[in-house]
Simulated assay, not measured.
Amino acid sequence: MPKLKDKRRSNVSVATEIDRLEERRLRCQDVLERAEWRSRREKLSENERQELEDQMTNMNERVQKLDEELQTLRGENRRNMMLSVALLAVSAFFYYLFFYTEENS
């Protein structure tokens, strides 16, 4: 099953994947903030408090993993941008050479 997921993601652009991960990170961050608010405001039993702390730990781990994935994707996005700029510069150079030599001939 994970291979199918990877195949679907391979058809998605890096920018779209970054947006998707940022949305997931915001949702996790929201859940984490609500859990922190609940732990401060409500009187919880020891068992409830432990469950809430476990949930907060889990959300913190997810946020960290998403941050790592985002960092990797942003690096890939920068490489893609630099490649695009380099291709544009090479294309412009050859275009200039073609028309410049046409005028001199």
Rank of each mutant, 00 (worst) to 15 (best):
N11T: 06
F93V: 00
S39F: 13
R20E: 11
Y96K: 03
N77D: 12
V12R: 15
D67G: 15
E102L: 06
Q64D: 12
D67H: 10
M1W: 07
A89L: 14
E46M: 05
N60E: 11
E22R: 14
R34D: 08
L26S: 15
D67T: 13
N104E: 10
K5S: 13
N104R: 13
M82F: 11
R25H: 08
Y96I: 04
A35G: 09
N80A: 10
D6F: 05
A92E: 04
Q50C: 06
M59S: 05
Q55P: 01
N47A: 10
R20L: 11
L97M: 11
T57Q: 01
V90T: 14
D30R: 15
N11R: 14
E46H: 05
S45D: 11
R41H: 11
R78G: 00
R49G: 02
D6S: 11
P2F: 12
R20S: 14
K43W: 06
E36L: 14
E102G: 08
N47F: 07
E69P: 01
I18T: 09
T72Q: 15
V85A: 09
Y100P: 03
R20Q: 12
M81R: 15
E46L: 08
V14P: 01
S13F: 13
E102F: 11
N77I: 00
E76S: 13
D6K: 15
T57H: 03
P2E: 13
S39W: 12
G75A: 15
L66C: 06
Q71D: 12
L73A: 06
V63A: 05
E69R: 15
K3M: 07
A89F: 09
N104C: 03
G75W: 04
Y96D: 02
L73Q: 10
L21C: 11
E53G: 05
D6N: 11
E48L: 08
N77E: 09
E48T: 04
M59Q: 07
E17V: 02
E103R: 09
F93M: 03
Y95E: 01
S105A: 04
E36A: 15
E17Y: 04
N47M: 06
R38S: 09
R41G: 04
A86S: 14
D54N: 11
Y100A: 07
L88A: 13
R78M: 07
Y96L: 03
E17L: 13
P2N: 14
I18K: 08
M81I: 02
R34V: 05
Y100V: 03
R9T: 01
E51V: 04
V31D: 01
G75R: 12
E69D: 14
D30F: 09
R27V: 05
E46G: 03
K5I: 14
Y96A: 02
P2Q: 13
R20F: 12
Y100T: 03
E51P: 00
K7T: 07
M81L: 11
N80C: 09
L44P: 03
E102T: 10
N47Y: 07
W37V: 08
M1C: 05
D19H: 14
Y96G: 00
D54Q: 12
V31Q: 08
D67L: 05
K43E: 10
Y100Q: 09
